[in-house]
Design a protein around this nucleic acid. Structure first.
Length: 217
DNA sequence: GGAACGATTGAT
DNA sequence: TCAATCGTTCCT
């Protein structure tokens, strides 16, 4: 099963190469779906990463799992964020999903978020997790299944199933994202909310998109 | 044991 | 600009 993940996207590479390829892919979870427009790369070799210094704790254990694993963490005493593990098992690399365009189950998202404005439902890592109802217990599970290739198929899974990522060209097109993306459509910049390794341009996003957590300047 | 600090968000 | 809020990290 794990070997077939490579048929989908080659996740066994550095996060700064995987992150831009996740743009335009759809995350589907518990009756909702959204198209990814912003993501950041983190690697154990730089101090902004939770895996820096090979710190393997209860919190970070899934960050060292096989590529495709979901890493969910709690922060600021109240928020949860989700990552996709990349690289080799035990490496500690991941891509933080930061923003997406709501695609399916918008009413559910509004209910979960307690907010109405479409623009703010999935624009931010903790907002995205809340809108999709991603849970702590989803950590450690794979976010890829080669048998599930479309948003519709992902939505047909067991309602209790956690987040899964698909590359659905039609779904992306329905919210104005044409795949494959051209290089010029991918913006890069400094990662948000960190105080170390701030110079790395490892934030990736859909250029000019109104759906990112912050504009790329 | 204790202090400081978050890969954030929403209100002022 | 600032408070909320609590697990993790790091120091004593």
């Amino acid at each position: 099963m794990a070997d077939r993940i490579a048929d989908f996207i080659d996740l066994e590479r550095p996060p700064e190469l995987v992150a831009p390829e996740l743009l335009g892919c759809s995350v589907v979870c518990r009756g909702t779906a959204a198209v990814i427009v912003e993501a950041e790369a983190y690697h154990e070799s730089e101090p902004a990463a939770h895996s820096y210094g090979r710190r393997i704790t209860r919190r970070t254990q899934h960050l060292f799992g096989p590529p495709g694993t979901c890493y969910v963490y709690f922060t600021y005493g109240m928020h949860w964020c989700m990552n996709v593990v990349t690289g080799r098992e035990g490496e500690g690399a991941a891509v933080l999903l930061r923003a997406a365009i709501p695609l399916t189950g918008v009413d559910l998202m509004r209910e979960r978020r307690g907010r109405d404005r479409l623009r703010e439902l999935c624009a931010g890592p903790a907002r995205l997790v809340q809108a999709l109802d991603v849970r702590e217990t989803d950590g450690g599970r794979s976010m890829f299944d080669p048998r599930v290739e479309t948003v519709a198929a992902a939505l047909r899974r067991d309602r209790r199933a956690g987040p899964i990522i698909v590359r659905d060209v039609e779904a992306a097109r329905s919210v104005g994202v044409e795949l494959p993306l051209r290089a010029a459509q991918i913006a890069t910049g400094r990662r948000i909310g960190i105080s170390k390794a701030v110079e790395l341009p490892w934030r990736f996003g859909l250029a000019e998109s109104a759906w990112t957590s912050k504009p790329f300047s």
